[in-house]
Design a protein around this nucleic acid. Structure first.
Lengths: 225, 225
DNA sequence: GACCTTGAAATTGTATACAAGAAACTTGAC
DNA sequence: GTCAAGTTTCTTGTATACAATTTCAAGGTC
């Protein structure tokens, strides 16, 4: 492989900075409304304003920040209402993926899901939250892909990424891993039965934020604000 | 109102250029894979490379183009498969909006929809495609908003905008306006009956590309390629 | 004291200059 | 004529310089 043909490895400084800033916003290092000062950031990342501005543009495009012309770029942390809306949307999109996947999923993918669930089970036994989180991501990604719709799968992935920091909070709820695990299994059962509506409902319930999960999320939001 | 406080009016050259380029891609002025030459575009828009680069970044973010590091930005026209995928996704998202709206829509919004449909009917009578198109957009936007989920509504709007050029093609199908019109009315009926699944199904069918519509879209794609 | 005007300082937006990597072309060997 | 190495040209990515607006504060007016 020639040196110029490597793909992902961000050789562009602007891309690295965008990823770093995204992470900083995700982890709550910036409050809602904070102005992202170009000159300050340029100093901190030890680059000129040019790559900083490119990175900021990317944040604006992914709605992590808003730009007001000739004023600057401001961090945009979702409030409780928008968070609930995003989770509801995620639940509905997962339901759609599931409904389509129920009719289109391959046998090998079903086996993959079973394997992932066994790994999940191991993580529950070991109380390994990070491990569970990784396997959980694989589980959902597999369903997105098995929707047989690449565009839809990418959209689902994008939203999942956006919600990542909040999903992690969910798992800290006592006994949530075991319950999540059980829900995974009923999803696979519905998929195997080619039960479109059953899969959709199971996934919607699985992802939706309600009851205990809702109160947990709200409590955590308050500690952040 | 002070001169500095106007909002939308793009005072930034980069934003204007981004919009212009988007339009050029939408209308098929560029082929898939065309490289967007910064220097050439800078000359054409009579501006330096800086705002051009910002505009290109925006195209990449909205997936109208792809960027290959140190190579350039290339136009990315969706092929037949991706188009079908995008329409399927649109149909499903509209179905979701409809299902939620059936339980949340206000009386006044229902009346608005009726009014819009009357305007649609006028356009059908006058064979006014542009007018119908505008009213049709209002119809769908109203349903997005009445889903009661602002985030979902914005996502739906974004996808609708992305599909705009192809949707217009659909309307040119003989008798399509009248049929679309009838479908609108059954959607409103289901909404008024608070029939969640009925609304979802009606909208999904309404938006989905199948049968005649599918062949029509394919035929048009071939003429473009 | 409240409010408007005015001007300095700071910040964004754009142009230009420079650096680094990729594409294209030339030259030479076989 | 084909291919390969080396050189030139061109393009992207980053830094810096300049222009245009906004912000903030000081000073004046009522």
């Amino acid at each position: 492989m020639q040196p110029g043909l490597r793909f992902g490895m961000d050789t562009r400084r602007a891309d690295q900075i965008a990823t770093a800033l995204e992470e900083l916003i995700f982890t709550g290092r910036f409050d809602d409304g904070d102005r992202l000062d170009e000159i300050r950031l340029a100093r901190e990342f030890d680059v000129s304003r040019t790559p900083i501005r490119e990175a900021l543009q990317r944040l604006v495009a992914s709605e992590l920040a808003v730009q007001i012309p000739r004023r600057g770029v401001f961090v945009r942390q979702p409030g409780p209402v928008e968070l609930i809306e995003m989770f509801e949307t995620m639940a509905e999109i997962e339901a759609v993926c599931g409904r389509l996947a129920a009719l289109r999923i391959s046998e090998t993918a079903l086996d993959d899901l079973d394997a992932i669930n066994r790994h999940c089970q191991d993580c529950v036994a070991k109380d390994d939250r990070d491990g569970y989180y990784r396997e959980n991501e694989k589980f959902h990604r597999t369903i997105y892909q098995q929707s047989g719709n690449g565009f839809l799968a990418r959209e689902a992935q994008r939203l999942q990424h956006r919600l990542k920091p909040y999903r992690r909070i969910q798992l800290r709820l006592r006994g949530r891993m075991a319950q999540s695990m059980a829900e995974h299994e009923s999803v696979v059962a519905a998929l195997r039965a080619a039960d479109a509506e059953g899969t959709a409902n199971a996934l919607r319930e699985h992802v939706a934020v309600q009851g205990e999960k809702f109160r947990h999320l709200m409590a955590h939001l308050k500690t952040l604000a």
